[in-house]
């Protein structure tokens, strides 16, 4: 059996476009999802049951089901909610943002919980109001602690975007799959696709590790 990896250069442009879509999708969903995740985390740590229970249910639902089915589900439900058929990219953004919200809410919640009660005590002893304490003591520390994990979450998200191939969005995976099917060269094309994902995700994981180490030093944990 002979392989010809040279042939992938013929498909460099569509593959690059696919990659662009994957990255764009990741960036948008990470931004929207983190906001949702922060809101969910705050709702989950609220003393009010009315806020806490729906947030818990949402997170359990989205963490307890495969992302693929979330994609399908949003795909079929969104037209009903909106009353018109949105672009498949929009459906993809909605589904992956909801998923990212559930994932990052756990990140924010863990960060929130890792802030010791003595920080609250000290704030009270200094006479800081609830709002000042939240804004200047709790949230900055939570953001610091959450940052490396959020970056990991964004790697997870970047990988999960490959699933949108199943609902017809032309991301890297989908473009690669189409090319591979039409020319019957899965080994060359799929390996290339895998390597592209790896080349982007792997350095990112190293950055996360470095950042984590620096942060641990700074916070002396």
């Amino acid at each position: 059996m002979d392989f010809n990896f040279g042939l992938i250069w013929k498909f460099a442009v569509p593959l690059a476009q696919g990659l662009g879509t994957s990255i764009l999708l990741s960036l948008i969903c990470m931004a929207l999802g983190s906001l949702l995740g922060l809101a969910l985390a705050l709702a989950r740590s609220s003393p009010s049951r009315l806020l806490r229970l729906p947030a818990v249910a949402f997170v359990e639902l989205f963490r307890g089901t495969p992302v693929l089915i979330q994609l399908f589900w949003v795909f079929f439900c969104l037209p009903l909610v909106l009353g018109f058929e949105p672009a498949s990219f929009t459906s993809g953004v909605v589904a992956l943002s909801l998923f990212t919200g559930a994932v990052t809410s756990e990140t924010f919640r863990a960060a929130l919980r890792s802030i010791g009660s003595e920080q609250r005590d000290a704030s009270v002893a200094l006479g800081l109001s609830r709002w000042t304490r939240m804004r200047y003591v709790i949230l900055p520390q939570m953001a610091l602690r959450a940052t490396p994990v959020l970056l990991s979450n964004s790697i997870t998200l970047f990988k999960e975007t490959a699933l949108v191939a199943a609902v017809g969005i032309s991301d890297l995976m989908s473009v690669g799959e189409n090319i591979s099917n039409s020319i019957g060269r899965p080994v060359e094309i799929l390996t290339t696709v895998a390597v592209v994902y790896f080349v982007i995700a792997f350095p990112f994981t190293r950055i996360v590790t470095l950042l984590e180490k620096r942060l641990l030093r700074k916070l002396a944990l």
């Binding site: 003595e118 920080q119 002893a125 200094l126 006479g127 520390q141 002396a220």
Partner: peptide
Amino acid sequence: IGMVFQNYTLFLHLNVVGNLILAPCKV
């Protein structure tokens, strides 16, 4: 009333001056 605790309770994300001026500025 001021209080100092057994555990270190400095705000870890702020430097020494930042710790000292937070309450005077905000409160």
